[in-house]
């Protein structure tokens, strides 16, 4: 299998597999976040479960981190290799005549998503890790002990308009990335024939609706409080 993993097609497969994992993760992330709009109590309980369950914390979380790092690192490595495959650029190139902007600029949309992800980690993930594993507070309770802290923290984060705007821009880039990435991942693992034609439509719906849903959540909490 080492020959497979080092081949051009093998790299496509592993990029696609990490993409599938990330797309499923985004879907479950959205499903939990939308609970903050529908029912703050359920959002708190679900967040506490995800934040303290050993299987999620010590099983899925490391896999997720590996998936994120692998997808970004391999994406940049392949971009460099692909750039090297054409030593002299065309004096005139009409890329728009045969391909979408999204498909030609995955590295840029991916790069902006990386910047957004770093900000997102600084906002939520690192403080969470600090509270739980450095300060050792696994209770998930507010400082006064009156209920869980997750909903309060979420609402507090979306008070400044600049952060809401930043998140909205981040989700626009996520949408642009997914508009090509969703169907591209299926193509990479060989799923492109008459039986999976509907996937393209589903992929476009996913790429628009999920980021739009995240934008809605950010705006809802900003204007509702």
């Amino acid at each position: 299998m080492s020959g497979f993993l080092n081949s051009s097609i093998g790299r496509k497969y592993t990029m696609a597999l990490s993409a599938f994992f990330l797309m499923i993760f985004i879907l479950q992330h959205f499903a939990i976040n939308i609970l903050s709009v529908l029912s703050p109590d359920t959002f708190n309980e679900t967040s506490h479960f995800m934040g303290t369950n050993p299987l999620v914390q010590y099983g899925l979380q490391p896999v997720l981190l590996f998936g994120v790092v692998y997808h970004f690192v391999m994406g940049f490595v392949l971009e460099i290799k692909n750039k090297n495959a054409r030593a002299i650029k065309y004096a005139k190139n009409n890329g728009a005549a045969n391909s979408t902007w999204m498909s030609r600029n995955m590295i840029w949309s991916g790069g902006f998503i990386l910047v957004f992800l770093i900000i997102h980690f600084l906002d939520f993930w690192f403080p969470e890790i600090n509270t739980k594993y450095i300060q050792g507070d696994m209770s998930g309770l507010l400082a006064d002990g009156e209920g869980y802290r997750y909903y309060e923290e979420l609402v507090h984060k979306f008070e400044p308009i600049w952060r809401v705007a930043l998140y909205c821009i981040g989700f626009v880039f996520l949408s642009l990335h997914l508009l090509h990435g969703f169907s591209s991942a299926f193509q990479s693992v060989g799923a492109n024939n008459k039986y999976v034609k509907g996937l393209k439509g589903f992929g476009k719906a996913y790429a628009v609706l999920i980021p739009l849903g995240f934008i809605f959540i950010a705006l809802f909490h900003h204007f509702n409080h």
């Binding site: 692909n82 090297n84 890329g95 498909s103 591209s184 193509q187 492109n192 024939n193």
Partner: peptide, 24 residues
Amino acid sequence: FGNCTNTGACEVECPKGISLENIA
């Protein structure tokens, strides 16, 4: 040669209309 990123430009420009299904 470089790695395919499924832009589909090849399929559009191919004078014989070879489909991306062949890559899959």
